[in-house]
Simulated scan of single mutants.
Amino acid sequence: MNIKKYARAIGKYLSDSNYRFLMNAGLGKYNNLSDKKYLERKFECCMGKSLDFEHPQTFNEKLQWLKLYDRKSEYTVMVDKYKVREYIKNKIGEEYLIPLIGVWDDPDDIDFDALPDKFVLKCNHNSGLGMCICKDKSNLDIKKVKNELRRGLAQDYYLTGREWPYKNVPRRIIAEKYMEDATVKELRDYKFFCFNGVPMYCQVISDRTSNETIDFFDMDWKHQSFTGLALPEKPFSNHSIPIPILPISFDKMKESAEILSKNIPFVRVDFYEINGKMYFGELTFYPAAGFGVFSPDEWNYKLGNMIKLPDVREK
């Protein structure tokens, strides 16, 4: 046990009200707080300033506004990693989905013997917790994987950032094919920032597990001078690898992003390119739950200005 480390944490807990709120929130002490009050308090803790719901200006402020007032039932389907498959099939085509291996309600229902040597297991209602990326089944600790999946299923992902579309997603486990590209070691994420059906910027994330870099490009594939969206405690990576080149399927990604973001004030549409073909990743309404940062910070305002909020607030 690191006594000094725990002593510092206790001291910070007692002296820093923002740190204390975030710690208590993680323990579930504010689960019954209204979405509006919770978001106001968390925004102040994370961003260091008050949240203005009446006159939101920045990208982050407007995402919080959309959490409260832009609530359409189809958003719940769109964030469900299982149900969204049918949605994507109908919108752009089944051929752009990563192949599904299976779906289960309980980790004990999974027949690991029947799974291929490589696969990905994940919960359909959250982001990361419980995920298993298996590259060699012979080395898999099945008991550990099941325990992690149970932790994932138990997570109420909505409560962390009050991202309400996740609140009523029926929780399941899905297995997808492990996808590999012949030319890159790790798949790149191509994340299109779309404003009411118009993709404006593509965020490219490379080398997540080694030396992560974040790049933004416009729709003419011109490299931009800003970067983001990272949580405040996570620094941006320096470029030690070449800037990503234009993906072969870029035009198809852009076309599909337009279709999937139509009539939505803001949504991020994610794709992969695998061996020259586009595959759908996910739809994200609130990147970093609206608590991320851009560098330089002026882009928080520039991107915020691109979000045109609906005239009617529907609670």
Results as ranks from 00 to 15, higher is better:
186 E>A: 08
184 V>F: 06
106 D>F: 07
285 F>N: 02
59 F>N: 02
42 K>G: 01
7 A>S: 13
3 I>V: 15
270 D>V: 07
300 N>G: 01
244 P>S: 02
177 K>E: 15
15 S>P: 01
229 L>D: 09
155 Q>R: 14
268 R>F: 07
220 D>V: 00
79 V>A: 08
185 K>R: 13
286 Y>W: 11
159 L>M: 13
168 N>T: 06
287 P>A: 03
19 Y>P: 04
227 T>V: 13
269 V>L: 05
70 D>H: 15
120 V>R: 05
263 N>M: 02
83 K>M: 14
110 I>M: 06
161 G>C: 13
238 N>C: 06
64 Q>R: 09
175 A>Y: 11
231 L>D: 12
298 E>P: 00
276 G>L: 08
43 F>K: 03
221 W>Q: 08
313 R>D: 02
99 P>L: 01
46 C>F: 12
128 G>E: 11
137 K>N: 10
139 N>S: 12
165 P>M: 03
80 D>M: 07
10 I>N: 00
60 N>H: 07
136 D>L: 09
300 N>M: 03
287 P>G: 05
200 M>G: 02
15 S>I: 07
179 M>I: 08
43 F>W: 09
162 R>H: 10
44 E>A: 14
285 F>Y: 15
189 D>W: 08
27 L>S: 06
216 F>S: 01
209 T>C: 03
117 D>H: 13
242 P>G: 02
287 P>W: 04
278 M>K: 08
123 C>F: 10
37 K>S: 14
212 E>C: 11
158 Y>S: 05
238 N>Y: 11
219 M>G: 06
59 F>C: 02
7 A>E: 12
24 N>I: 00
97 L>H: 11
146 K>P: 11
58 T>V: 06
267 V>P: 10
11 G>I: 01
218 D>S: 05
241 I>D: 07
235 P>D: 10
116 P>H: 07
279 Y>R: 11
102 G>A: 04
243 I>F: 10
280 F>Y: 06
179 M>D: 08
91 K>W: 01
18 N>L: 00
1 M>Y: 13
57 Q>G: 09
232 P>G: 04
45 C>T: 03
270 D>I: 06
277 K>M: 09
101 I>R: 12
130 G>E: 07
44 E>R: 14
266 F>V: 04
12 K>M: 10
147 N>H: 11
210 S>C: 01
255 E>F: 09
